[in-house]
Structures are given as structure tokens and as C-alpha cells.
Design a binder for these strands. Structure first.
Lengths: 245, 245
DNA sequence: ACCTGAACACCGTTCAAGT
DNA sequence: ACCTGAACACCGTTCAAGT
């Protein structure tokens, strides 16, 4: 309940300036700069000029700090366009979430427990999602399922994108490609070996020359970039929603 | 490349019985029993009756061991039904993945890097996914995007399900509910406060009495269980695919 | 009430040494 | 080639003590 600010701030007694906000901000700065593993209690305390143990007065353990960080990371999504249809609104909603995770990639690595669903920003984002679908004549539980589906999808795709980006894409040395080629064969993997050998199994983080293949079974496989995958996945879900109406 | 078994086994010299298989199996047993954090190099070695350092002869670091564990966890999915349409096959495909993760929940917590995509079972599962859609007149890159979408969705939903199950669902004490009620208000969250107060924002891990509401905007919200969410999300994607044809 | 210092029981990983 | 022992530089968290 710390996150909601209902625990009245103890304004009595000596306070040398530590606070929940400062601790969470310091932790986020470290995570942004050096990644989540660099966020140790000692590192956070040190960056604030306090001892490690001082943090435990504000946060009961590291997990709680992580949950606070995660929620704080999701503050980018503000308002949805009042014009346009539900597709436009859901798209900007999903893209807002995506932006937040891109800004704070480490947030994707913090496990989503029960607590995180009831954090302020989670509730706010869910509320915005429901607002985006206001015009749709669907029962509330279906809308919640849609929100859940879209946000999970957004997280997964962003996670994939970021892990590929930091590793420079699934690009192998020609030696590795060759060795893998001896093992990924038509006999063993009849449906995908061809794609692998053509390089189509490779996913790029950035936007390469995009090919939009015509719907033919034997079209040449192309490099795929995650941004396209994300847009495609969204449209897939939108198509599903439309088929419900 | 260890995972593909191309590194010839060094059958010369004294071997007191350690091997990649035994190390990975031991690590998986520990993870199944005590969770991923319990998988330390010391714990794995001890369970095999060796010193910690002996593992480093077979595995270059802990991350590599984790990647091997993750791939080994995905061996459940065998064959897809030859009867029925692509929906049936994709459904059993996704449910096979789901089963594997349910059996080895910790596998969801191992980060998916570039290496993991090219591991034997990942390639095998991707191949099966392509096979499931063989009849569909869609370009290969679209099929890959579908596979990616479905597997990410499956992972997310299973992850949600498991985190709720281990925490006993988002069930709050009446005290907590009350406190949250003072903070999740109609003014602040106009589109979701009503749902929260009605208990509809609560997601159950197991199957509670399911209500399939009629498509009315003001239908009473109901408890939602993750299994339904998963099936719903799959159908949403299937609807999207159909709209592509 | 707020912060510190010392201590505890761990981690992953190194290196040189034994057989 | 395979495994061990000792050591290093870390972790999160406790507890009693200071102001």
C-alpha cells in the first residue's frame, strides 16, 4: 500500500532526506544505466549517499522495491485520442505501454505478481484500456480479457525486440551458420529447414528492407523485424475482436 | 552448440561420471522441487556428489546451464493430430507448449536470448507450428509471425496463471479490499472502479463457476479464470487469421 | 524516528594444484 | 582430462547500537 501513498508520511523526528520516491528514482536510474542486475541494495544506497541498511526503513525487502520500480516505470501512457475508432485507441494504448517498456527495458524482467496488478499505474492503464473500448458492445469480462491479451502480447513482443536489439539480432557468423546447417536439416525439420537455410528464420531488431509478400504458399521467405511482428499481432487480435461483434 | 550434441564426447581420460545430461537433469530436478532461485551451482553440484567447480568443465557459466535447462523443459510436444483443421492443430500445439511450462514453471523465468531460439527443441517446436499451418495459403513470414504471436501469448498466459496459482489468486482480505476501495474510486478510474468494486477485476487461477455473459454493455462482471482467458486469446488470434484468408 | 556498523550466510567465478 | 581446495569479490538481510 506504500505505492498508493496511503501510509501517512512520518513527518516527525529526524529525517536526513531519504524517502520512497528518492529510493525508487535512484534505483530506476541505476537500472536505466546499468541494467536490473546492477540494482543492488548497496548500489542504490550508495548512489544516495546512505548505508545499505537505511533502505530497509522504507522498503521491507528488495522484492518490494522492484514492484515499486515496475509500477513507476509505467507512467508514460496519458490520454487516448478522442477521435477515431476503438482500433486507433487500442493501438495507441498498446504503443504507449510499448514505449514505457522501451524506455525502461528492465521493467520486463521484474516478475508480475499479484501485488503488481493492484498498483496505481497498473490500475490506471487498465482503466484507459477499458475506456478505449467504451463504444464496443461487448461484456466487461470479454473486454478485460482483450486488455489482458493485448498487454501480454505487447510485453512479449517488446521483450523479444529488446533482447534481439541488445544482442545485435540473430546474426550468426558464417561458421556458426554452417555448423547449424548440418544439424537443421530437411529430414529432421521438414517445415522450417528451408526457411532457416534461406535466412528467413532470422529476426531483425531494427527495420530492414521490408517485404510484404503476396499470399502465396511458396513465396520467398524474408527477414522479419519485430516492429512488423508487433503491428501484425495487434491486427490479428483486432481481426478477432471484429469477428466477435 | 553443446545442446545439439555436435561437440564430440571426450571419452578419453578419467571420467568419474559427470556429463551434460546429468548436470542439466539435476538442475531441472532442483528447479521443479524448489524453484529456479534454488538452482545454484553449489546446489546442482552437491546433488550430484561433486564439487561446485567440477560443473565448469561442462558448462562455461550459469547462463549457459539455464539455456540448456530451458530447452530441455520443452520436450513434451510430440505430434499434432492429422485429422481436423489448422485450428485444431494450432490449438494442440499451443496447449502442448502450455503443458511443458506447467510442468516446469521456472522455464518461464529464464530470459529468452538469441541463443535459445536456435536450440534443438525451439527449432523442433517451430517446425511443428509450421506443419500445423501447412494447409493455409499464407506466406511463410506471416506464418512465422503467427507462431511467434501464439507462443508469446501462450507463455504470457501460462506465466500469469502460474503466478496467480502460487499466490492463491488475487484474493484480498476484506481489510485490504476496503483500503483499496478508498483509493480506486469512480472519479479516478471511471471505467474500471465499478468492476473492481463488483469483484470483477479479480482473476482466479482455477476454474470457478464460469459465466458467459450475453454481449450487453452493462452485463454484470464475473470472476475470470486464466484458462478461459487463454482459450479466448487463442480464438481471438484464430479469428484474426481467418480474416486474413 | 532515523540511520549506522558489524556480522551472517550465502552467491558465481578464478586460479593453481592435485591425480 | 577431470576434479578439488582455497580464495575473491560480491549478494540480501539480521540485529543491536548509536543519535
Amino acid at each position: 500500500m506504500i505505492a498508493w501513498g496511503v501510509d501517512k508520511a512520518p513527518s516527525r523526528g529526524p529525517s536526513r532526506g531519504l524517502s520512497h520516491d528518492r529510493i525508487v528514482s535512484a534505483a530506476m536510474e541505476i537500472a536505466d544505466r546499468d541494467g536490473l542486475p546492477a540494482v543492488t541494495m548497496q548500489a542504490v544506497a550508495k548512489s544516495l549517499g546512505f548505508t545499505t541498511m537505511s533502505l530497509y526503513r522504507y522498503v521491507s525487502n528488495k522484492d518490494e522495491l522492484m514492484t515499486l520500480m515496475q509500477d513507476a516505470a509505467m507512467r508514460g501512457l496519458a490520454e487516448l485520442p478522442s477521435e477515431g475508432g476503438w482500433e486507433d485507441r487500442l493501438r495507441t494504448w498498446a504503443e504507449g505501454i510499448r514505449e514505457d517498456y522501451r524506455r525502461h527495458p528492465w521493467a520486463l524482467d521484474i516478475p508480475h505478481g499479484q501485488a503488481s496488478v493492484l498498483m496505481p499505474n497498473s490500475v490506471r492503464v487498465a482503466d484507459l484500456g477499458m475506456a478505449a473500448m467504451e463504444e464496443l458492445p461487448l461484456p466487461d469480462d470479454v473486454k478485460i480479457a482483450v486488455i489482458l491479451t493485448l498487454s501480454e502480447l505487447t510485453m512479449s513482443m517488446t521483450s523479444l525486440e529488446l533482447s534481439l536489439a541488445t544482442e545485435g539480432g540473430v546474426r550468426l557468423t558464417s561458421d556458426e551458420t554452417e555448423r547449424l546447417g548440418t544439424v537443421i536439416t530437411e529430414e529432421r525439420f521438414p517445415h522450417i529447414a528451408r526457411l532457416f537455410q534461406a535466412g528467413g528464420f532470422v529476426v531483425e531488431p531494427q527495420s530492414p528492407p521490408v517485404d510484404d509478400g503476396t499470399p502465396t504458399d511458396d513465396s520467398a521467405p524474408a527477414d522479419t523485424n519485430v516492429d512488423d511482428e508487433f503491428v501484425f499481432a495487434l491486427e490479428l487480435v483486432f481481426g478477432g475482436i471484429r469477428s466477435l461483434l
